[in-house]
Design a protein around this nucleic acid. Sequence first.
DNA 1: TTATTGTGGACTATTTTAATCCACTTTACG
DNA 2: CGTAAAGTGGATTAAAATAGTCCACAATAA
Lengths: 148, 148
Amino acid sequence: MEIIRRKTDYAIRALIHLALHPHQETTTAEIAEEQEVPLEYLHKILQRLTHGNIVNSHRGAYGGLSLARDPEDINLLDIIETVQGKINMNKCFLGKNGCPRAPKCVFKSKWLQLEQKIAEFISQVTLQDLVDQVRQGGYQEKGGEGEG
Amino acid sequence: MEIIRRKTDYAIRALIHLALHPHQETTTAEIAEEQEVPLEYLHKILQRLTHGNIVNSHRGAYGGLSLARDPEDINLLDIIETVQGKINMNKCFLGKNGCPRAPKCVFKSKWLQLEQKIAEFISQVTLQDLVDQVRQGGYQEKGGEGEG
DNA sequence: TTATTGTGGACTATTTTAATCCACTTTACG
DNA sequence: CGTAAAGTGGATTAAAATAGTCCACAATAA
């Protein structure tokens, strides 16, 4: 089971694209084509990133998108939570409709510990980190051979 | 999005039940009733745990289930991977059908790092830990008020 | 005032997860 | 024996989550 949903994958690719093309308005269509992502779906995803104040949008002719903040100030946790929601380990183990003793439940603390570890790690990775790695050649612009 | 699937939750509840009732054959029906889990579904889940050598099954009249190992030797990672499969962060970001440069991909290392952290933490939690916490009163035998 | 671009809501399709059904095998006990 | 009580395993269906599409609309620059 993958923790990162496809839409989050798309979001990250779009954000890397924006980071690689600063100082210009980039359209959703351009990103969709370059990253080979369904246009209308990408619209939805970018809307969420806009609402999450990760990208800025500009409507109308010659409009488009740009990063709302510096890539160093956008971390992976922001991105993930904005597009796919918070990562939880489990609602609660015991009890049918959510544990009736959640406040006292000792399992819960195990999950919270883990959730926090995950969040901590993910939030330390910034968009800039990813961009740097891309610049070092760690991926190709237009993938799709499906060989890996 | 929850990382722990419902079936894994059921599995853990069943295993705790088995751990709390050692030295006897416990039937799936008994666990299903006590833990309020659909019987036929629980059958499937326990089959996986049997294949994963986490529980032993005994067919026929007066048959049933028991833990295949001591609760200290069963960890959460075993359970999760046995019932819901391996936890991955992402297949791969870049490229359409899986990243064609996976072996060189630098993103991959970020995900692998995180996967390992998660696995490390989860594998340190044993069934015995959970049972101990249950014994300390951290849950109630038959939940379901849905108040928590 | 028109072409371009994002917005937002409703909708459909696909995939995953959950749950059920049923015919079968094994086995203890009378 | 044979029968009732268990688990097994494959097929199927149901429900939920995710992915993707459609369309009418709003904003805006030329």
